[in-house]
């Protein structure tokens, strides 16, 4: 069983601090979501875990062993930017990549044929990659990531470019890997996917961890302060509530509303307004905020803290200068 532990890892590129004292632990048999907007430091962190680059400070261990050439053999990495040799045949390509992970040619071929079968692609073995569609190439790349049965599977936006059927197939496979006790690191900025898949998560922004823990804990932390309604009829009452400062609209389409309750507004107030104004009400629910909302709040808070911290520093230096 291989536990991935990232401790106080820092990476600086020239003048940019890409990763700033990041720590988290991904447990075997669980899916760990690494979330953050583009440029937050996800890829930089993953590259250090994959031992493609080395941290300036901090340690990364897999199963207690510091990452290095040995741990590279026990992990598979699906980068966000996919890449295969276009002129090479699928079988040959997968064989080469699996052998680079330390497999013998014979074992690699068995594994590759198994996985191609699993993805309904047994007859691709002799096809050139450039003959395959984008979605098919994606599957080939996924097989390259898992063919050597790695302890740690790193998937950076694995669903991008997949149609719903293949996305579901991939979800099933990921669930199997999880059941088999693999450690799965899932990086994404698609919050609804993370919400569906992950057991634990870690939000990073501007190179820093701003929120981490089990998905359920994190959501509970933010409380049940969000309402979702489905209705027929006018929605001018929504504007009235928002103008009063009672709610903040999160998403709003014809006949659908998700809003956050502000200033301890009771949910009843929204329900009353809706009952009075709409012709039909199909759904009213009070629930935890969606992950993207949590993310937005967490990023906002962390920015406020930064500003406050820098203001305090400025004040301290001012008072130091004046004294």
């Amino acid at each position: 069983m291989s536990r991935l532990a990232v401790e106080q890892v820092t990476k600086r590129y020239e003048r940019v601090l890409a990763v700033d004292s990041v720590s988290f632990v991904a447990e075997p048999g669980r899916i760990f979501g690494l979330l953050g907007p583009n440029g937050a430091g996800k890829t930089s962190t993953i590259r250090m875990i994959a031992y493609i680059t080395v941290p300036d400070a901090g340690t990364i261990t897999l199963g207690g062993q510091p990452v290095g050439p040995a741990t590279q053999q026990r992990m598979g990495y699906l980068p966000e930017e996919r890449g295969l040799y276009r002129k090479l045949r699928v079988g040959e390509q997968l064989l080469y990549l699996a052998q680079l992970k330390g497999m013998t040619a014979r074992a690699a071929e068995t594994a590759i044929r198994h996985w191609l079968g699993r993805f309904g692609a047994a007859d691709w073995y002799g096809k050139k990659v450039e003959e395959l569609s984008k979605g098919m190439q994606q599957k080939v790349q996924f097989i390259a990531t898992v063919a050597h049965d790695p302890q740690l599977v790193i998937l950076d936006e694995p669903f991008s470019g997949l149609d719903p059927i293949n996305a579901e197939l991939l979800q099933d496979v990921i669930a199997e890997l999880r059941a088999a006790g693999r450690t799965i690191l899932f990086a994404s900025h698609r919050m609804e996917q993370v919400e569906q898949l992950c057991d634990d998560l870690c939000l990073i922004a501007e190179g820093r961890v701003i929120l981490s823990g089990a998905l359920r804990e994190v959501k509970r932390q933010f409380g049940s302060n969000t309402v979702t309604l489905a209705f027929d009829g006018g929605d001018a009452w929504v504007d009235a509530l928002a103008a009063d400062g009672a709610v903040q609209v999160l998403s709003r389409t014809a006949g659908h509303l998700t809003a956050r309750l502000l200033n301890d507004t009771p949910s009843r107030r929204v329900l009353d307004a809706a009952l009075a104004e709409t012709t039909e009400l199909y759904r009213f629910e009070l629930h935890e905020p969606p992950l993207d909302e949590i993310f937005r709040m967490a990023v906002g808070q962390s920015k406020d803290q930064n500003i406050r911290a820098s203001e305090e520093r400025a004040m301290v230096s001012n008072s130091a200068a004046s004294s």
Binding site: I52, G83, L84, L100, Q141
Partner: peptide, 16 residues
């Protein structure tokens, strides 16, 4: 070529 078709990142996670 390896850099522009991005395979280099996959290989760099397997070899130095």
């Amino acid at each position: 070529e390896e850099k522009s078709n991005r395979i280099v990142e996959v290989i760099a996670s397997s070899a130095r």
